[in-house]
């Protein structure tokens, strides 16, 4: 694992932490219940993080 690869560990932790810490029904995004809205946001963040990892990964250069 190169140092930049450790960045890819952020999305799994972020995505799973939301429902664990705040399992409540109140609307988050588009009126979705919090756990579902949180997961949707982290899917987008995963794509952004992986784009950064891809860009900075020496293997791709």
């Amino acid at each position: 694992m190169k140092p930049i690869h450790w960045l890819s560990m952020i999305p799994p932790v972020g995505m799973l932490a939301g429902p664990l810490l705040h399992n409540e029904v109140h609307p988050f995004i588009l009126g979705m219940p919090f756990p579902l809205g949180w997961i949707a946001v982290w899917i987008v963040l995963t794509a952004i993080v992986m784009a950064i990892v891809y860009r900075l990964d020496p293997a791709n250069r």
Binding site: M15, L16, P33, L36, I39, A40, T46
Partner: peptide, 23 residues
């Protein structure tokens, strides 16, 4: 209901694993 949310998550995390395992 809520337990179905797992379907949305596992593929996303699997692609991160695929980044390192598949090449």
């Amino acid at each position: 209901g809520a337990p179905a949310y797992y379907i949305l998550c596992y593929g996303t995390l699997a692609y991160i694993i695929g980044y390192f395992v598949l090449p």
